[in-house]
Design a protein around this nucleic acid. Sequence first.
DNA 1: GTCCAGGATTCAG
DNA 2: CTGAATCATGGA
Length: 306
Amino acid sequence: MESLAWTPWRPLRLHTDISAEILTEQLDGGQSFRWAAQPNGSWTGVFGQTLARLRTGKQGLEWSAPVADAAAEERLCEYLDAEGKQARLAEALPWRSDSVLRAAMAANPGLRILRQDPHETLIGFLCSSNKRILQIRVMVAALASKLGRPLGGGFYALPTWAVLAAADDEILRSCSLGYRAAYIRETAKILKQRPQWAADFAKLTTPELMATLQELPGVGPKVAACVTLFGFARLESFPVDTWVVQALSSAYGLKGWKPERLEEFGRLHFGPAAGLAQQFIFSAARQGVLPAAPALETKTRPKSRK
DNA sequence: GTCCAGGATTCAG
DNA sequence: CTGAATCATGGA
């Protein structure tokens, strides 16, 4: 393996500083599947064509990148919302009147949506159906290392649609994709014909973008919502997965609601940054720190405790 | 061996 | 149209 020259660690000034725990939640909490924790506690990952390292030090967030990549810092600032666009959106969420959201935000203060590349987001969530986050990361890592462009140090960018469309069946199968291999393959066949797909899609309104994404094989309502949220920075998009269904059912008392109706509830209740609220609730639910529904709304005896 | 996983698609009613 | 079965794979 070729050795790679890294820049020294340097501070990355964020509008809202984040702790080591929040950094972990952002990089490894199901938004991106491209970051790996190193033994020394730092993170190494790829976003777009950029390879970088991140860690939290005494001065706050610190970064390092291959010395050859002069644009890495600027890309990291965009990726991590260093400017703080989401701080204002988070403040405007209805946490004052919503104790569940307030608890979820308090559990992960400063948590933000990563500003990801559409291509990597679509590949990641095409792999996501019926899989755990850890396994999705393994699948995506295999696609990168077997078919992607080397970035040095044993790291790889994700393969292009053209490469994926032409990839040998054995290679795809060896990535543990299961039935999702067909999703990747068929979507690749379509998108390799239009290299400007991401720029074209970015011009669409969010409802149009959602509908257009769902024309792709393997993209349903939830995957489309994740791609619009994480890959196209549509903060109003509200993905409803199994965790959100469970969380809205138990914490908001919306029992038996179907995903489509829960998505509408999320967008109406949380507003322009519903996707950011969703990420707080998703993370809190996975961490098991989401409060239960108020006793008034539960029909069973309110006093039964374990 | 059984069950389930940041769901989507296909099929039955 | 809605709801259930099916999909391939790995880990608990």
